[in-house]
Design a protein around this nucleic acid. Structure first.
Length: 197
DNA sequence: TGTGTGATAGTCT
DNA sequence: GACTATCACACAT
């Protein structure tokens, strides 16, 4: 289904994280799991920066966990948090410049039965309306940390074939204590799958 | 529709 | 030893 020319190229990710975040809204996240494609439309994201962003993992420099954020854009940065949840990000910017975009919510499009099974819930709206929920629904775990998102493999991102018919809203980021003044959260207006309103 | 709280384990100081 | 880019559930409105 996902044709090769629709997969987003490296150049898309080698931009400022805020730019990538805004552009990522409406794109399709594809998880290829045992030959089955689980697809969700990205409806909510947040941008994270480097030394200039106190909310970012990269704020205090390179560590074992965050080093992907300092590499070239277009790779999956997957980390474990709150003792229970995985969060999925895409790295952004050129080599040496820290940045990433957190996927906060998806609208389930394909493979919904598998997502329901992975999540243990039926209600469509509860499947992928949060960063920890969407990773559980798509089976995204630490083993996918570092995957190249520009290659059509286990995990990648495509343009949608349908033309985007939506309005992107900007707001404050969620679930952080610092850097709250930065309007770096982007989501689709009135979309039912956005994590918080 | 919203607020409050406990669970849980990896990461960093 | 403290903190966390979260979630689910309880309970009130």
């Amino acid at each position: 289904m996902a044709s090769l020319e629709l997969v987003l190229p490296r150049s898309f990710y080698v931009q400022d994280s805020v730019t990538v975040a805004r552009e990522l809204v409406g794109k399709l996240l594809v998880r290829r799991l045992e030959g089955v494609d689980l697809i969700g439309r990205i409806v909510e994201v947040e941008a994270y920066g480097g030394e200039n962003d106190p909310a970012s993992h990269a704020f205090r420099g390179v560590t074992d966990r965050n080093r992907l954020m300092f590499g070239v854009g277009g790779f999956a940065y997957v980390y474990f948090t709150y003792g229970k949840h995985w969060c999925f990000n895409v790295t952004t910017g050129p080599e040496g410049v820290a940045g990433a975009v957190l996927a906060r919510a998806l609208e389930p499009l394909r493979g919904i039965e598998v997502m329901q099974k992975n999540r243990g819930v039926k209600r469509l709206r509860d499947l992928t309306n949060g960063p920890g929920k969407l990773t559980e629904a798509l089976g995204i775990r630490g083993e996918l940390n570092g995957v190249d998102l520009t290659k059509e493999g286990e995990l990648f991102i495509c343009k949608s074939e349908e033309k985007g018919n939506f309005e992107v809203v900007v707001g404050k980021r969620v679930g952080i204590r610092f850097g709250l003044q930065k309007p770096w959260r982007f989501y689709i207006k009135d979309n039912k799958f956005v994590s918080r309103t």
